[in-house]
Every structure is written in C-alpha cells, then in structure tokens.
Design a protein around this nucleic acid. Structure first.
Lengths: 218, 218
DNA sequence: TCAATATCGATAAGTTATTATCGAATCCTT
DNA sequence: AAGGATTCGATAATAACTTATCGATATTGA
C-alpha cells in the first residue's frame, strides 16, 4: 500500500514497533505462520485497532480471517525501524553504565553493534570488555573515519558529556544516543536521542502517588 | 491556583518536570533567585509557552517581568512528582544492569533510595555493593513487610521477570520499575513502569535513517 | 453450497497535546 | 512620574494521536 517510507511514521508507532517485533519473532521461532492483531494486542496489552493502524505503516497487508504472515511482518518491521542491517556504534565511557551496555547482548536484535569503546581512564584503556576493545578517547576520530562509524553512545558523567559530543560530531558521527542527563548542543543534522531514567521514574512516582491518593476506600 | 493534585497532571508534563527540576536546582545552587520560562525553555530546548503551561500545574504562580521564584518552584516540582520525601525501594537482580543501578548515586535526587538488593545467585548474596546488602530472593517478603517497602525494581533476565513480579506483588509492593523487556501481568492496583531501551533506540534509528534519506542535497 | 465468523482496512469521531495570540501586570529606564 | 519592555496566564486554534464503528473479504463448518 505504501511505497517504502514515503509518509512519515508517527513516533508513538515507532516506539511500539520493537514490542511488536519481539512478539512476532517469538511466534516465528515457535513455528507459527500467521498472527492477528487481536493476538498481538492481547499479548502486549493494547487494543487491536492500535496494532492494526500501526502495522499499516509497515507496508505489509494483512489477510482477512488470518492476520499477518510472520515471514513478511518481521522483516518489514525491522526495515521500518532501520534495523535491517546492523549499524556499527562507538561507546564512550566505560563506567558502570557503560559496562552494563557493553555486557548487554541484546543490541544485535536492535540492529546495532558496539564495535569499540572509549574512555579517558588509562587504567582500563588498552584492555577489552565483552569482546570490545577499549581505546583512549583521543583515538576516536581516526577510528571513526577508518571504520566509517556513524553512531555514538555517550555514557559519561554529565559534566563531560558536551565535550564528548563535540568530539563525536567532529569525527563525523551522525547519531548520538545520550545517557547523560544534559541537553546536548549539536548541529541540526546530527540526531540526538536522550535516554533519561528520571523521566520514567517521574511517571512511576506520580502514578504511584496518585493511586495511593485516589484509591482511598471510604 | 490549583489546590494540590485535584486535577490530574498530563503525563507529558510529568515527563518534563525532571528536566525543569534539574535546571532549577542548578540555578538555585548558582545563587539565583528568579527564573523565567523563557530562560528555562532556552536551556532545555523547548518553547517558553510549553514550560509556562507545564509549570502552571505545579501550583506556583509566576511573577510578571520576573518569572518564578526558585525557592518556591523547586519544592513544588518535587512535590508534584512525589519526590519530596524519599521512597525506599528494593532492587531485584544484581547483574550488570543491577550493578549499574546500584552504583548510580543520583536516585536521591529523584526521591528514591535503594535500601536492599536481592538475587538468586549464592555467590553474591550475603555480600554488599554500593552500601546495599544483597540478600537471597527468599528473604524479600519478610523484609518488605518489616521495612514497609512499596517500590520494587526488576533488573533480572526476562524469563524470570514475571515470577519476580509475582513475588513482589505478594510481598505487598505497590509500584514496579521494570527493566526487563516483558509485559508484566499484575493486579490493577499495582503500578508498573517499563523501561525499555529498545524504544529509545527505535526512535533514534528511525530518525537517523529518515535524516539520511530526506536530506539528499540535489 | 451457503451461512456464520473472524479479521482487515478505511472512515469518522473524540480526545489530548501542542502551538499561537493577546491582554494584564510589573518592573526598569529615563 | 511616565512610557517601554518583559513576562505571566488565559483563551483560542491547530495538530496529533487514540478510539470507535462498519463494510468487505476470505475461511470455516454445516
């Protein structure tokens, strides 16, 4: 129906895609052939009409009385997300968070591969961790060019995050996944996605308090 | 203007509150007395009208030509978020992610304190990490009751996340911060907030690809 | 073969959130 | 002391997202 990415996909839809993908892959592994939006919705806790609308953006057509063909849907979701061929990424900052990211094996499913890590602490540079070598930050520019890496992950304390971002931008990085709680100042052609735990915790705290206050029996 | 939390605060607003709070605290530390929505907006990259609308939910009134009084705004934001008095929390799962969470010192600013950690690995239970003792998971119910803990953090692999959730719920936990990529099935009076890195990465990948495709200079 | 049913896909309605606009209030400058 | 500038706060307009509804279609089972 839609020809590739002509029309932009709403961001809420994009955010839900990984959930669909995860479920769809599970089903495929289980040997199923078809999946309905009813079933997907039930599994991930959303109304089927939301799922149906979302899936329409993937470009695959469903089948009355059957649903969607898994073999078709999974690759389409990956493609929509840009996860169809893995993107190489650099990680900057090998503190506790950086180590957790390095140790997390699941990024392959998300079309990303951390190919090198960087830090300014001499005690750990030169070594490696979870199959990734750790280089001094000074080496980043030349390696970025040589390896043609376009994605950078910032996992450093907030007071150095901006300077790291500058280094990344100068090195030709086009996308930054920022785990430091600061607003980065970058050129408009560089995409920044900030991951901030406080946002999630804020919603949780609020809802928790709201729940305690409103549910006051009698 | 508003009397406490009579009217519900929109979730997008709640998500932005931590950013305002961070900036406001910085300014306060710097010895400032007033802050305008214009300045806040410029700092965190949003239009001033958004900030103004959001702040109206906090209950504090601004001052023409001056802005908002920092001494008043910071506590109000904390109160709105439910961050005014710290909530004790249990962490379950002391793998690499759990360790990163334990090691992260910033939760105090978010009104949360991890008072104990739990794991099923005998090698690490009994020890401690970042000032938190690590207990076997079996001890959780009795400790939850004794310490009156109402918030649980799930940082275990996804295949055991649901069973951990069940334990938490049975132990009287009212809110769960879930870092496992699964939809948890819990009673409706328990609030679950799922933290899923794939959502953020999805948006980043999509925007990155979109950028590359649309910005095609001639 | 034909009716019943589950599903998709499109349209419409409703809700929520964002953005724009403007008057009122206060401070600052002259 | 008076005019200009800046900011708040309210209202209105726009846009985005969600939810509801319904006909079309293909499969199943009688």
């Amino acid at each position: 129906m839609n020809n590739d990415a002509m029309q932009p996909i709403p961001l809420p839809t994009i955010r839900r895609f990984p959930e669909y993908l995860r479920f769809v892959e599970d089903k495929r592994l289980a040997g199923e052939e078809w999946i309905s939006t009813t079933e997907i919705g039930a599994a991930i806790g959303r109304k089927s009409v939301v799922v149906r609308k979302d899936l329409s953006y993937s470009g695959v057509a469903g089948h009355p009385r059957r649903g969607f063909r898994l073999e078709e849907l999974a690759p389409a979701l990956r493609r929509s997300l840009g996860w169809d061929n893995a993107t190489d990424a650099f990680l900057v900052g090998v503190g506790s968070l950086g180590q957790a990211l390095l140790g997390y094996g699941g990024f392959a499913n998300y079309g990303m591969r951390i190919v090198a890590a960087f830090d300014c602490n001499d005690d750990i540079t030169g070594g490696s961790m979870a199959q990734s070598q750790i280089f001094p930050i000074q080496k980043l520019p030349q390696l970025a060019k040589r390896m043609n890496v376009k994605l950078g992950i910032i996992a450093v304390p907030q007071d150095v995050a901006q300077s790291v971002a500058n280094i990344l931008v100068d090195a030709g990085i086009r996308g930054i996944w920022n785990f430091a709680p600061v607003q980065l100042d970058v050129p408009s052609n560089v995409v920044v996605r900030r991951e901030d735990l406080s946002h999630g915790l804020a919603v949780l705290s609020y809802q928790l308090r709201e729940e305690c206050e409103t549910i006051r029996p009698e």
